[in-house]
Design a protein around this nucleic acid. Sequence first.
DNA 1: TATTAGCACTCATTCGGTTTGAGTGCTAAC
DNA 2: GTTAGCACTCAAACCGAATGAGTGCTAATA
Lengths: 339, 339
Amino acid sequence: MELDDRKLKILTAIIQNYLETGEPVGSRTISKYTDLNLSSATIRNEMSDLEELGLIIQPHTSAGRIPSDRGYRLYVDMMLKEKEDELNNLKVELNAKSERLDTILKEAAKVIADSTNYASMITVPKYRTKKIKFIQLTQVDFSTLLCVVVLDGNLIKNMMVPCDEELPKEALLKLNLMMNTFLQGLDMQEINVSVMQKLRNEANEYSALISNILDAIAKCLEDQGVEAYTSGSTNIFKYPELNESGKASNLLYALEEKKELTDLMYKEGDSNRGIQVYIGEENPIEATKDCTFVTATYHIEDGVYGKIGILGPRRMDYEKVVGTLRNLMNELDGIFGKE
Amino acid sequence: MELDDRKLKILTAIIQNYLETGEPVGSRTISKYTDLNLSSATIRNEMSDLEELGLIIQPHTSAGRIPSDRGYRLYVDMMLKEKEDELNNLKVELNAKSERLDTILKEAAKVIADSTNYASMITVPKYRTKKIKFIQLTQVDFSTLLCVVVLDGNLIKNMMVPCDEELPKEALLKLNLMMNTFLQGLDMQEINVSVMQKLRNEANEYSALISNILDAIAKCLEDQGVEAYTSGSTNIFKYPELNESGKASNLLYALEEKKELTDLMYKEGDSNRGIQVYIGEENPIEATKDCTFVTATYHIEDGVYGKIGILGPRRMDYEKVVGTLRNLMNELDGIFGKE
DNA sequence: TATTAGCACTCATTCGGTTTGAGTGCTAAC
DNA sequence: GTTAGCACTCAAACCGAATGAGTGCTAATA
């Protein structure tokens, strides 16, 4: 049996109706609310075919039909193709490059959640190579040093390092110079024993302090898993089918824990610049098997990228989501890309 | 009618039983599971009295009794008195003063949520006077300045400030010196027009840059509401009475939005060093009227304090919560206090 | 006088059965 | 190929009886 044009139209009608209502849709509805001018009986025949093709399912005998994961998949694929070079012009309210990265990201997550009405999640860029661009040591008070590390892409990390005594100005200057000459341009993997040895040799009397500082830096930069912000998790409650029994609870837990979701997002790496869609059972995470999870990648510079994810019901407004994501990605690329 | 000792014992028994089960407790249960050796009939009489005193209520005729807000209040007050100088010895797994403040706080929120099984929230200390302790400007690349501001209590803020040109080393040094001499020890309120004017005069050719920097600092320090972290919000699902109908959704929303809750926490200021308990209707926030909200204050130094809140069902294990909070407060005071 | 046993009563919850109505599949006619 | 008509299915809504936990009251008891 072939999937002809009429069948496709009916499938689309079913999906769109289901997206709106969340209820199984029957033949009569389609017959009435499309311009196909077909009787419900004919629609029924077609539906029967579509079911045989595995694109729609009946939750139970004598109920209407709902799209199957395969059905959604077809729909989404069609739409992604259509959207390929189109552009949505939602104006994201992100301003000023001078804002701090995390503020921007939190804001972005919120914008997405608010404009789509689904739950969103955004990760702080993962630095494949966290190259050190700049280090600055400063004495804050007599027993504390402030160490600021700027990484590629202007990601700033700072940490307090305890020290025993007030350092003379010249010593501080020297330390700063040393740190920068030895460490600039390196990433954590490259700070190996020999580099550390050299540094400590140069530092002579402050070698203990240097160790402390390096430890602090290492701790700060080490792969503590991916940092991520979520927003709009309570939007989940807007969709009854996610709200029933214990489902919402598991979803929210997944959003709070974040790990599973970020792992999934990063599985694809940055190679795939496009948008990834996991529909229902396609979703490898147990808690989200009733959801659709859409992920996208934004880029700061080569090898530095973060992920955005949107979690909502199967009946997600794919057009809007994809549009919003495309848009936000452009915004982010614009904000970060021109540095 | 008097609240004699026996009545008090029965009330306590009712509350404790209800805390465990979450179900209305009947006379027979009390009669069997206490060492009072009274028949259920007697208990019934006493219960009837307790109800008249407004300490317990019947959700409906022929159901058992549950504590009223007043009943809880009595119980909590008794308990707080008992606990006054006792000390719980849960070992909080917070280490190293060198950790960054936000990491510690996130960790603390998590510890609390995990060990109590309620939702927790912790605020980043609010600086009544955000005095500037130290400012450091550094050129990160040819068009970006990094500005690090250290506030009293070693709270670090950093921001990127765009600039048009690469500044000569001496200029940067001068700017740094100026900023520190003029701004050190001031808080945002004190940076008024005259100070800014003076700064700009000194800076002459860089006066535009100075304006940018001051803007960035102001933006960064301005009262953007209180920052707060939550943890364990999904614990809410563990309590059926909070889970029914739309309640959980509202609660989670409140926890996500945070504002209302932090406002409430800060209403008390830091004057009250003790623990504050809002039971059910005592709670001014609509969404949490079915909950108990326990808040505590931790101190970093004079005028610098943060809040911890625990949100759970009315039938909260008050002993444990108060114990845990006391303990955590000590830990935090210990970590921050010795600076 | 305080306590208790006994009993009638209340009412939320559970369970089985019926009704309703949306929706299907099939068949025969167009 | 399309449609009208009809028998059939089944989830959900509705209804009422049974269940049982728990109460309040009363009369007997210590």
